[in-house]
């Protein structure tokens, strides 16, 4: 009796959540992928609300400063290249996982993490320069939108970096045990990371160049 109970208990622990790797027949997607797209849809609305706010403030204001006169365009341009490069490295990591080359995939994941770190270092330099001049979100509506939008974007970059660090640290074990699942996790994390890149592609000209 006890033996049966233990066996049943052990078996219960082995039951896996379905569709973490394979596609559901009705959606044609594994759950992680549908989940990340639903999350990204909510993220579009979050950043959309901030862009909407920026438009309302800017079109209603009698005067509005040009971003290129107040912000550091060269640093932001470098950051744009860094983020675009990181989008490439993450798709390359996913591609190499599909080719069965974990070492190369890990190198590209590490490069993605480094790009994220580089982006945040540059952003920190930008912020600290402003703070040294006693400029902050309280200064005016332009800086309020600048700090809120780039700050929220920066938090998203940090969030992505945490996930990439986790993927890197657990890569060997996870890949050996559940290779397909790990490959899919890299894919959905990549989708999130591309979205972060996409937001910056619009933030850069909107805040810095106009």
């Amino acid at each position: 009796m006890d033996g049966h109970a233990h066996a049943a208990d052990a078996h219960a622990h082995e039951i896996e959540i379905p569709y973490t790797v394979h596609a559901r027949p009705d959606t044609g997607l594994y759950n992680g992928k549908l989940g990340i797209w639903l999350f990204l849809a909510s993220e579009v609305m979050l950043f959309g609300a901030l862009f909407s706010t920026l438009i309302l403030l800017r079109t209603s204001a009698p005067t509005w400063p040009h971003g290129y006169k107040l912000l550091n365009v060269p640093l932001a341009t470098v950051n744009t290249f860094v983020l675009i490069a990181s989008s490439v490295t993450v798709v390359l990591a996913w591609a190499y996982l599909r080719l069965g080359e974990l070492k190369k995939a890990k190198i590209y994941l590490a490069l993605t993490l480094l790009c994220g770190l580089g982006f945040m270092v540059i952003k920190t330099i930008e912020y600290s320069t402003k703070f040294q001049h006693h400029i902050g979100p309280h200064t005016n509506n332009f800086y309020a939108t600048y700090f809120v939008m780039t700050g929220l974007h920066g938090l998203h970059v940090v969030g992505g970096m945490v996930v990439f660090a986790y993927l890197l640290l657990t890569a060997n074990k996870w890949y050996a045990e559940k290779r397909d699942q790990f490959t899919n996790r890299v894919e959905v994390t990549g989708l999130y990371w591309h979205f972060v890149d996409l937001v910056w592609i619009f933030l850069f000209p909107t805040l810095y160049l106009l």
Binding site: H22, G100, L102, K103, N172, Y175
Partner: peptide
Amino acid sequence: TDTHAPHDAAEFAPHQHAGGPGVEPL
């Protein structure tokens, strides 16, 4: 990797060593 029909757990067996030339692609 979501493109194939479900296959059994043996496919994820630890014989799939991490990286290296011995690992076949999906």
